[in-house]
Design a protein around this nucleic acid. Structure first.
Lengths: 155, 155
DNA sequence: TTATATTAGTTAGATAACTAACTATAATGG
DNA sequence: CCATTATAGTTAGTTATCTAACTAATATAA
């Protein structure tokens, strides 16, 4: 590839990724609604799959999201009774967020609702091929993330 | 892979794609600002690379976007003098949108501003690997798009 | 030990996307 | 033909994100 071809390929790649993201997110949103939106589901899922308690800041970082956005998501989840938020005794700036029983159930309903989408994909797409591209995407994501921190001045 | 593993892999994949999209879009936005946002640039770029005149509906479809969103983007581009919008004589429901000289220049400034991003990627990532995953992503995008049309009732 | 800087979280306001509902025009079929 | 349906585009209102600016608490260092 010439540099010009590489450059063009890279923009095509990001364009495809953008469209896939939009199509997949809107499909997820449809099956999760009206109980949860994809961001809310993501947070509940995080409590099950990654760690069962966290802080708003830590969650914001995990989801590559700003703190105010996470504040808003957590407020909605708390209103629905899906997470519990308490102040930390050790560091009184911090809050400790954890999933509730109702939250676990909502997350399970979400998983069940999304399962057919995975099945459709497994039926219509070469899943092995998708698995193969995953490491490259992960490397790209890590690179962009590191790049961003470098540019933003090591936040 | 077991079905459960496939399912989990698929969600991981969409998650990575979502994060990449967010990181790359915000990088693009930074270098394009304050003249254009990525959507506006995309439309101008479309006039250069795909077709030099189009209609709001057609553009909305090309960008997988709703008509009202495209109306808003075109209104901003018209205010900036980057596109011209005239009514069609043949079909008076339709409008014909085309890029202006100023629009071409703005698009070129955008291309120039984004070029360093491509270079950073070429320096830090295996571009051949990125090129290799592109066909799989395109197949996935086409499948999701076809799926969506099927679900929405062949709109 | 006290002034300064950093970290955690929230509030306020802006923006760009969406859906629902509308007007206007064109195409279709009894 | 005329009534119905479909298409093109806009308007109005909602939502989820963002940035900037703020308060409160902790850490650092002169």
């Amino acid at each position: 590839m010439t540099p010009a071809e590489s450059s063009s390929m890279i923009f095509t790649l990001f364009n495809e990724i953008g469209i896939i993201n939009q199509l997949s997110t809107s499909r997820f949103a449809k099956v999760l609604a009206p109980d949860l939106n994809p961001s809310e589901f993501g947070v509940l899922n995080h409590f099950i799959r990654v760690r069962d308690r966290s802080s708003p800041s830590r969650l914001a970082k995990a989801f590559q999201m700003t703190k105010p956005s996470m504040t808003a998501i957590l407020a909605k989840l708390e209103r629905k009774g899906y997470v519990e938020i308490v102040g930390s005794a050790e560091d009184r700036r911090k809050k400790i967020v954890s999933i509730t029983k109702n939250g676990r159930e909502a997350r399970q309903r979400g998983v069940d609702a999304m399962a057919p989408l995975a099945e459709i994909l497994m039926a219509g797409q070469d899943v092995e091929a998708l698995a193969k591209i995953l490491p490259t995407l992960q490397a790209l994501r890590e690179f962009l993330d590191a790049e961003r921190n470098a540019v933003d001045g090591l936040s």
